[in-house]
Design a protein around this nucleic acid. Structure first.
Length: 354
DNA sequence: AACCCGGGGCA
DNA sequence: TGCCCAGGGTT
């Protein structure tokens, strides 16, 4: 059973049914690492251009380690999960300072780098060094849970342990790189989340889920997602040529990205009544301003939050006192990384101010 | 163990 | 809408 499974996947891989990617067959651990960080929870198509941008701008780990943080974040802008970017920079510095610029070549040493967990460590260890570590990502969970009909929830400690052990047992000796590549491609191309191609699947005759008509029920997840609604009102304060922004640092979404002056409410507010609120007055105090315009409300759907945002354009004649915020010439705004809601706003400059 | 973190594609 | 994507870190 196990031998049929692994050999079928390797054969499938050799028949060139797989996806093409710019990093495939890559042996430079730096490039493999870069691709793996970019692809965490990210579709291959979505990460593709980012990978090319990073390789072009930072050809070596030394280049990345020496890069200004703001420039790296700007390159990452729009990709999401921004902690990956910060950890990636920290790992680059780790590699340069602790490993003399040479990528570590054992599973444990690789995993000790910032932003690298079990999956990414196994991926780099196998792809770059052909070390015998099985990858366990969303594709592998799905393929294994279906073929072996395992209904242990994959988002639990027990589930992770069980699937990790099974994946490792299946790993064919000496072929970890090609096998890991095979099973992930197979999960993405054949054993897809929705409407898997079971009729043409080379594993189907021994797939336990397919035989019982259970493919749509596997894998099992235990947690249900709760989505919170938030309302962001951004005051875009302009004094002469300057716009006031700050870097987000709280324990919240969009860490290390920038934003305008934020007023958050728990319910939708009318911009006019917002101006009368104490929160608004606390920020603007006795600053004399003029409202030059109000944007249409924008909506952004995150995985676990829905952000409704609206932009109020304020101009002031005297240099305002806005603690925590920095005046930036508006033509330099594109040096800073912003969340998508704000880049969308900046892109649509139908408002008179811009 | 539970919770948090983006943005996009697809049915 | 809901689900998922070459997951990892923090509490």
């Amino acid at each position: 059973m196990n031998k049929f499974f692994t050999e079928t996947l390797l054969d499938w891989n050799n028949n060139e049914n797989t996806r093409s990617m710019p990093w495939k067959g890559e042996k430079d651990p730096y490039r493999i690492w870069l691709s793996e960080i970019i692809l965490q929870q990210t579709r291959v198509e979505q990460g593709w251009t980012y990978y090319e941008k990073f390789i072009l701008n930072y050809p070596t780990v030394q280049d990345l380690a020496a890069a200004p943080e703001e420039a790296v974040f700007r390159l990452w802008q729009g990709l999401g999960y921004y902690a990956r970017c910060k950890n990636m920079l920290a790992a680059a510095k780790q590699i340069v300072s602790m490993h003399h610029g040479h990528f570590p070549n054992t599973y444990d040493a690789i995993q000790s780098l910032k932003g690298i967990g079990p999956y990414t460590s196994a991926a780099i260890a196998s792809f770059a060094f052909n070390l015998p570590h099985a990858v366990l990502d969303g594709n592998v969970f799905r393929v294994l849970s279906r073929f072996f009909d395992i209904d242990t929830p994959i988002d639990t400690t027990a589930g992770k342990k069980q699937f990790t052990q099974l994946a490792q047992e299946l790993l064919p000796h000496g072929q970890s790189a090609s096998y890991n590549q095979s099973i992930m491609d197979f999960g993405a191309v054949v054993c897809k989340p929705q409407q898997p191609a079971c009729k043409s699947c080379p594993l189907s005759k021994k797939c336990k889920a397919y035989q019982q008509g259970l493919t749509s029920l596997l894998p099992v997840k235990s947690k249900k997602l709760v989505i919170r609604k938030r309302y962001f009102y951004y005051l875009v304060v302009q004094h002469q040529d300057n716009i006031y922004i700050r870097k987000r640092t709280e324990n919240d979404i969009w860490q290390n990205l920038h934003e305008f002056i934020l007023l958050e409410t728990t319910a939708p507010e009318d911009p006019a009544t917002l101006q009368a609120s104490t929160a608004f007055k606390d920020i603007m105090k006795d600053i004399r301003y003029n409202i030059d315009g109000t944007s249409a409300p924008l909506k952004q759907q995150l995985t676990h939050q829905t952000i409704y945002s609206q932009f109020l354009l304020l101009s002031v004649n005297e240099k305002p006192e806005l603690p925590g915020y920095t005046a930036v010439p508006k033509e330099q705004l594109d040096h800073y990384a912003f969340p998508k809601t704000i880049t969308d706003f900046l892109k649509n400059r139908e408002l008179t101010l811009f």
